[in-house]
Structures are given as structure tokens and as C-alpha cells.
Design a binder for these strands. Structure first.
Length: 507
RNA sequence: GGGCGCGUAGCUCAAUGGUAGAGCAGUGGCCUUUUAAGCCAUUGGUUGAGGGUUCGAGCCCCUCCGCGCUCACCA
């Protein structure tokens, strides 16, 4: 397919030709940089404070974000990873030929390098007086942004790229013109770093387990299927790490965690992307109860590391993660919210009938657990704005969790909610191999084999458990959603660098 | 998958069914401390794609593509 250039791009291609005809390489191999933009400004301020006469000589590099030619002089701003700094080009300093070169052939978006002396302009802005400059990389396509304005020291961008489709399809352009987008991903990295530090300091071992799996499991989700050609074997992209991580407990690794990608072949929404990042950890001799306190401690640690605060704003709410978080049983929460005591309805049929009496609409053919889960999502989750642990879940939607003693319908499990979203999910892990096998078979009966959430029986997992698995508590949390909370973004696409979009048809 | 909305210049946006426009960017010119610099001139469009109605369609109708919101779905 022949690439078609716009008139703006053709103008810049002609500039490349002109540069080359003058013996100037528009994409030189190397740059020499002595200071970042902010470091150069700092160096000048330091020299000023010391009232030294020593001139601050620097070589800076960055992307041209503003040019203001005024005849015999021209002001420009370049932006680098640290910030932005003004450049002053003067014909007296450079000569007419170099001045013309800059004004005629350099464009917004080009990467350039400039050397000279730092000084302060009449308006007080610390600026590089340019003695030498060169092109580092010519931009052919103009950046999708208008010029910047500086108001009281703050950069105000006009006509900034806002079309979500372009922003996500051409995330590089979004990042290039929207600095706050870059900040989201710095925050995201800081969150992951804080989680690792927290777990590493507590004796956890970070591990990696298979992404390509012969049997998927550990969650109720439809998998992506792929194929190994040479082995002639279908494989699944993992939907969770759970079953592999717990195998490691059998092997004597008592505290393990993994941060990585899960893949679920389901609909996309503001809080669902087909691939997303998950943290899971498993702790021998822990249980769901101790995991609640551990979760509170971990989230507080992350917030303090990343935000320097336990309080943040999300979607117009001030959220405070200071422990203890609200704790309420799923049963009690549903009594409060919809007036149904699930303990009174031991079967799916009776619960569905009760829901109809309360003018709710039970999904046809759903199991008791799925009905409860449905009410949870509709009537509980959106209202859990402040951090809340919901605990004691129905057994039939939790096939890997251990029974609550004395209550055969309920398992020791909790989910943590913040900002009206499920953030994490944890339970006391089932470690009885015979019961685990029975649970898988139970699932097999209740969910038809056509059901997308049908759980395949992982015999090797049973085999592992039969060697003896220490009692343990497991935990899973969506990193994307935690990032949404800490950056006050309300769509998962904002916190994923390259979110999934439908392919565009070539024409 | 259903419903609602959106798609116009590189970006942000206008345009009762009646000649497709503005700001910024671009191009040419003036301009030696500006900062969305300013001033003068000027280029730029298959209005997402295709079909239909009409004397005439960016606008009305149909199909398709993409995006958003929402519902369904989602341990």
C-alpha cells in the first residue's frame, strides 16, 4: 500500500530534501546532551544564587513545541523528558545563514539539539542563548496539537488531541502532546514498584508461570485459544495464575506472587480490557481473615508511596484507605440493599422466586450462586465507594475456596471494593484434593459443557494437591483498576498504553 | 449482540436541504526580548465509505466501517 502524504507532510519532506542538499543530515546518528531542560534551568539558578560570574554552558535536546520567529531573532521552546525550556536564536549570534536555516527548515515536532549559554530574558524566563544547533530527527507528520500557552507559569494547551480513537490508536501521538498521559503511566509504574517492594520485604518470592496453558482455570471466564503448530496442540492464554501459583506451595515455596497479564475473551467495557494486569499472591498458613488486614496494609503502603497520602479523589469522591475498612457479609449486605436473606433460600429456584417477589429479575437458569453474584454486581458493587470488604461467598461460584466451618453453602472468601469497583478477590484456599475433585465435578454438573464458564477439570492440579498443600490464603487484584483509582481515571483504556480497539478495515 | 449518540482541513470546532467556513498549524512577506507574539497575504476538503430521495444533500433515508455512552455479558 502506497503511503499518501498530506500537504503538510509534503512540505516537510521537501525540507528534508533541502537539508540533505545542504549536506545536513536530518537524522544524525548521535546526540550530545549535557543537561536536561530542568537541570539547565537549575544550574543557572544555582549560579545566580552563588552570584558567580561563571557562565552556564549547556547542550540541550528535545522536541520543538513552540516557535516564535521575529525577524532577526526567534524564540522557541523545546520539551524533553524533564520539562521544557526556552531557546533564543539571534542573527547576531548565529549569522544570517544559520538563522534562515532554523526559521525555514525547522518545524514544530522536530527533535533538535542546541548549545549555548543560559541567561534570563527581560521577562525573566531562564533561556538558552543558542550558539550552535542541529537537527536530531525531522518530524514529517505534524503533532496533533496546537501551540502551547503559558499562563502564570503553567502550560496551557490549545486544541489538544482529544478524539479517543486517535488517542488510543496512535498512543505515541497522545503521549507526545499530552504530558498528563505520560504521568498516568509513571504512576502506574510506581504502583507496581510499590507492590513489589511491599511483597519482597515480607518474604514473598516473585515467580513467573505459564501464559500458554493446556488447561485454563482459576477464574470463570472464556479463554482465548491458540495453537502450537509443531506440537499440534491447542493452548489457552491464561485467565488467571491461580492454579500454577498454588502448585508452588506444594513445592515448598511458601510465599509466592506474580504480576502479569491475564487474557479473557469477553466483552470490553470501562472496566474490562481483553488483556489486563493482575497481581496474585499466595501465603502458606494464612487465610482470608489475615488477608484482609494484609490487603489494608498493602493498599495503604502503595497509596503512601505513590501519592504520599491515604486519601485521594476518585470520580468526585474523597476516598480514604485508612484501616480498618468496612467489613460486611454478603448475606447482610443483600438484606440491607434488597431485603432478601439468602440464608432463607437454599436453592436457585427458591432464591429466584424470592427475587421475583421483590421485583428483581433473576437470570433464567442461573445457579443460586450466580443469582447472588448478579445481585452483588447490580445492587452492592456500585455503592461500595469507600473501601469495603464483602465476605462469605456462595460455595457454587467459588470452587477453589475452602468451606466456612459449619456452613456448607458458604466459603471463606472476600472481595474488596473501592470507588464502586471490585478491586480484589481473596479466599482461604481449598487444599483438600478429594474435595477439590468433587467441587470440579459439581461445577461440571451445574454448568453445561457449552457454558463458557464451564470449568475444565485440571487433573494435574489435583495431583499436586494430593502431595499435600499447606493451608493458605490467596489474593488477586487488578493493577489496571488500582491505577484507575489512584489516577482518577474512569476508563480502563486510560491506564493501558495500548488498549484493545477493533481493527480498521483496509480500503 | 441490542439501544442511543458521534464521524467536516494536520488539531479543536462552525455551517435552516441552497456557493463548505473559523482559530491554531502550513506557505510567502514585514518584524532584535517574545511566549497561543503581532501585522499583511495565501494554501489546504471525495464532509468515514457506498447507495437512495431531491432541481439541489455535510444536513433527510438505507447499508457498511469505526469510536463513545449504555444494556446484556463479565467468580
Amino acid at each position: 500500500m502506497e503511503k499518501e502524504f498530506t500537504s503538510l507532510e509534503r512540505a516537510r519532506l521537501e525540507k528534508i530534501q533541502r537539508l540533505r542538499s545542504q549536506g545536513i543530515e536530518p537524522y544524525p546518528t548521535r546526540a550530545q546532551v549535557t543537561h536536561s531542560s530542568t537541570a539547565a534551568i537549575q544550574a543557572y539558578e544555582d549560579a545566580e544564587a552563588a552570584s558567580s560570574d561563571g557562565k552556564v554552558e549547556v547542550t540541550l535536546a528535545g522536541r520543538l513545541r513552540a516557535i516564535r520567529p521575529m525577524g532577526k531573532i526567534a524564540f522557541a521552546h523545546i520539551e524533553d523528558g524533564a520539562g521544557r525550556v526556552q531557546l533564543l536564536f539571534r542573527v547576531n549570534e548565529l549569522g544570517q545563514e544559520k538563522m534562515d536555516l532554523f526559521v525555514r527548515e525547522f518545524d514544530l515536532g522536530d527533535f533538535i539539539q542546541a548549545s549555548g549559554t543560559m541567561f534570563r530574558t527581560r521577562t525573566g524566563e531562564i533561556t538558552l542563548q543558542v550558539k550552535e544547533f542541529q537537527m536530531l530527527a525531522k518530524a514529517i507528520t505534524p503533532l496533533p496539537a496546537a501551540k502551547d500557552e503559558v499562563v502564570d507559569g503553567d502550560v496551557v494547551r490549545h486544541a489538544l488531541l482529544s478524539d479517543p480513537e486517535t488517542r488510543f490508536r496512535q498512543r505515541y501521538a497522545d503521549l507526545a502532546v499530552n504530558p498528563e498521559v505520560r504521568q498516568i503511566f509513571r504512576t502506574r509504574a510506581a504502583i507496581v514498584r510499590a507492590l513489589r517492594q511491599f511483597l519482597d520485604e515480607r518474604g514473598f518470592l516473585e515467580v513467573e508461570t505459564p501464559i500458554l496453558q493446556p488447561i485454563y482455570g482459576g477464574a470463570a471466564a472464556r479463554p482465548f485459544i491458540t495453537h502450537h503448530n509443531q506440537l499440534k496442540q491447542d493452548l489457552y492464554l491464561r485467565i488467571s495464575f491461580e492454579l500454577y501459583l498454588k502448585r508452588l506451595l506444594v513445592g515448598g515455596l511458601e510465599r509466592v506472587y506474580e504480576i502479569g497479564r491475564d487474557f479473557r475473551n469477553e466483552g470490553v467495557s470501562f472496566k474490562h480490557n481483553p488483556e489486563f494486569t493482575q497481581l496474585e499472591f499466595y501465603t502458606a498458613y494464612a487465610d482470608f481473615e489475615s488477608n484482609m488486614a494484609f490487603t489494608e496494609e498493602m493498599i495503604v503502603f502503595v497509596c503512601e508511596q505513590v501519592l504520599g497520602s491515604r486519601v485521594f479523589n476518585f470520580n468526585g469522591h474523597e476516598i480514604d484507605v485508612t484501616p480498618p475498612w468496612k467489613r460486611i457479609s454478603l448475606r447482610q449486605a443483600l438484606i440491607d440493599a434488597v431485603g432478601i436473606d439468602i440464608a432463607d433460600y437454599p436453592t436457585g429456584e427458591s432464591l429466584a422466586e424470592a427475587m421475583r417477589l421483590h421485583d428483581l429479575h433473576p437470570a433464567a437458569g442461573a445457579t443460586r450462586g450466580k443469582l447472588i453474584d448478579g445481585m452483588l454486581g447490580d445492587y452492592l458493587e456500585p455503592n461500595f465507594i469507600q473501601p469495603t470488604f464483602l465476605y462469605d461467598y456462595p460455595r457454587d461460584i467459588s470452587p477453589l475456596a475452602k468451606n466456612k466451618p459449619g456452613d456448607p453453602q458458604t466459603v471463606e472468601r472476600f472481595e474488596g471494593f473501592v470507588g464502586g469497583m471490585e478491586l480484589c478477590n481473596a479466599f482461604t484456599e481449598l487444599n483438600d484434593p478429594l474435595e477439590q475433585e468433587a467441587r470440579f465435578e459439581e461445577m461440571g454438573r451445574e454448568y453445561s459443557s457449552e457454558d463458557e464458564e464451564h470449568h475444565p477439570l485440571d487433573e494435574d492440579y489435583i495431583q499436586a494437591m494430593s502431595y499435600g498443600m499447606p493451608p493458605n490464603g490467596g489474593f488477586g487484584m487488578g493493577i489496571d483498576r488500582l491505577t484507575m483509582l489512584l489516577t482518577d481515571k474512569h476508563s480502563i483504556r486510560e491506564v493501558i498504553l495500548f488498549p484493545h480497539l477493533r481493527s480498521r478495515e483496509e480500503d
